[in-house]
Computed example of a mutant assay.
Amino acid sequence: MNTKTPETVLLGTGRMARRAWAIALLLVAISARAGDTESERENLARIENELAVVQQMVAAASRDAPPSQRVNFRYEWLITDLDVMRRGIQQHLNAPMQPRPVEPLRGDYRQ
């Protein structure tokens, strides 16, 4: 039974990781252009889901990487960076949307 995904078969391990990273960067760039709050939240949720898929692709590439290469790709660093991006997006999406209380200004500065 072949456990490789079609992406793994078509792309080399390094190429797959570069593709995953490029997708993540593209998705972040798209979210920066979001206009209103709701579309921004929808885009960020979509990006977070895509980053989860990219993380799975990188993990698969890591498992399929040849152990004895002259230069090794640091899959664990990429997975960590993707996780940091996902957590940041999740924190933003889970933050309360109600205004925070603001201490009133005194306003009268002359005596």
Score class of each variant (00 low, 15 high):
residue 1 M to N: 13
residue 2 N to K: 02
residue 3 T to N: 06
residue 5 T to W: 15
residue 6 P to M: 06
residue 10 L to W: 07
residue 10 L to V: 10
residue 12 G to L: 06
residue 12 G to T: 13
residue 13 T to A: 00
residue 14 G to E: 11
residue 15 R to G: 07
residue 17 A to C: 09
residue 20 A to Q: 08
residue 20 A to N: 07
residue 21 W to L: 10
residue 23 I to W: 06
residue 24 A to R: 00
residue 25 L to H: 07
residue 25 L to A: 07
residue 26 L to G: 14
residue 26 L to S: 07
residue 29 A to V: 04
residue 31 S to E: 15
residue 32 A to C: 12
residue 32 A to M: 14
residue 33 R to K: 05
residue 35 G to H: 12
residue 37 T to R: 13
residue 39 S to P: 00
residue 39 S to W: 11
residue 40 E to T: 13
residue 41 R to I: 02
residue 45 A to Y: 05
residue 46 R to Q: 04
residue 46 R to K: 07
residue 48 E to Y: 01
residue 48 E to H: 12
residue 48 E to G: 12
residue 49 N to G: 14
residue 50 E to G: 13
residue 51 L to H: 11
residue 52 A to D: 09
residue 53 V to G: 01
residue 54 V to I: 10
residue 55 Q to M: 15
residue 56 Q to I: 05
residue 56 Q to T: 10
residue 57 M to S: 09
residue 59 A to D: 12
residue 61 A to R: 04
residue 61 A to M: 07
residue 63 R to D: 06
residue 64 D to V: 00
residue 65 A to F: 01
residue 66 P to S: 01
residue 67 P to A: 06
residue 69 Q to W: 05
residue 73 F to T: 02
residue 74 R to I: 05
residue 75 Y to V: 11
residue 77 W to R: 01
residue 78 L to E: 02
residue 78 L to D: 00
residue 79 I to Y: 02
residue 80 T to R: 09
residue 80 T to E: 14
residue 80 T to H: 11
residue 83 D to Q: 15
residue 84 V to M: 12
residue 84 V to D: 12
residue 86 R to T: 02
residue 86 R to E: 00
residue 88 G to H: 09
residue 88 G to D: 08
residue 89 I to G: 08
residue 89 I to Q: 06
residue 90 Q to P: 03
residue 90 Q to A: 15
residue 91 Q to W: 02
residue 92 H to S: 02
residue 94 N to I: 02
residue 98 Q to T: 05
residue 98 Q to S: 13
residue 99 P to F: 07
residue 99 P to W: 13
residue 99 P to E: 09
residue 101 P to F: 15
residue 101 P to S: 14
residue 103 E to R: 11
residue 103 E to S: 07
residue 104 P to T: 02
residue 106 R to S: 15
residue 106 R to C: 06
residue 107 G to L: 06
residue 108 D to G: 07
residue 108 D to Y: 06
residue 110 R to F: 06
residue 110 R to K: 01
